[in-house]
Simulated scan of single mutants.
Amino acid sequence: MIWTVPNMLTILRLLAAPGVVFAFVFLARPWADFVALLLFVSASVTDWLDGYLARKWNQTSRFGAMLDPIADKAMVVIALLAVTGLFGMSAWVMLPATVILFREVFISGLREFLREQAGLLAVTKLAKWKTTVQMVAIAVLLAQGIFEHYVGMHSYGMDAAMVDDVLAGRQPDEMGLAWKYNGLLATMYGGIALLWLAAVLTFVTGWDYFAKSLPYLRGKP
């Protein structure tokens, strides 16, 4: 039951996680942005697909149940590392990223400590929504780098006044600068807003898990 299609998809998702960072290490931009975005989105799709196929084909396994959350966490943690670097350690990205990373480490440690009682921390529907919002936010923020590159490239040699005229429609926009600039703003602010929403959901689900484990942490199950 290890080498089933759902488990292979999970393994590919796990292997794709470091590829997001490797793309920026070994490739020039914007190719690095394209590759990182493609890897992350593909891996995010397999997160839903492997579970769906495992249930449909009755191919659920202990190996898959063990590896699936590990692959999810690896994708989110490593992609957040790349995103914080791309945004120059901006506080608007660093703060929600810190909340997300802290929660993942804390809950993983809590599950390890509880061992037999770890079933108390079974994944809830809200936690699944949390993971979905995290992945969408990271994908949008990775896309921001693509828009940023082309806005910079297509405005190269223009002064601020000329750029303002093009964006305002007072000069011809032969390079499509306006829609690229709007895409830059949408992915930047939209991605940051989604990341903060993900951080809130992360905190709420983390606190829920912690509250459920308190009787066992106090030694009074």
Rank of each mutant, 00 (worst) to 15 (best):
Q144D: 15
D50Y: 08
V41R: 01
G219P: 10
L12G: 11
G85Q: 11
P221E: 09
S155E: 08
R29D: 09
N58V: 11
I100N: 01
D33G: 02
M8H: 05
M66E: 13
L37P: 02
M135C: 14
M175W: 08
V151D: 00
L12E: 06
G64D: 13
L141D: 00
P221T: 07
S42R: 04
L167P: 06
L141M: 12
F63C: 14
I192M: 02
V41P: 02
A23D: 12
L177T: 13
N58P: 01
P69A: 10
V77F: 14
G157S: 13
M135R: 03
G206R: 05
S44L: 05
G85V: 10
L9P: 01
N7W: 00
Y52I: 09
F24N: 01
F22K: 13
Y181V: 00
A54E: 09
V83K: 06
T187W: 00
L194E: 00
A23C: 11
A161H: 09
S155K: 07
I138R: 02
P69F: 08
L9F: 02
P221F: 08
V99I: 13
T131Q: 03
Q171R: 15
W31R: 11
A186P: 01
V93E: 04
G109L: 10
R115V: 08
S44N: 07
L141V: 00
G64H: 10
V133F: 06
N182L: 11
L120N: 04
E148W: 04
F26H: 12
L101Y: 04
R62S: 14
I70H: 05
E104N: 03
L81S: 15
I11N: 01
A168V: 02
W3L: 15
L80N: 07
S42C: 15
M188T: 14
S155I: 09
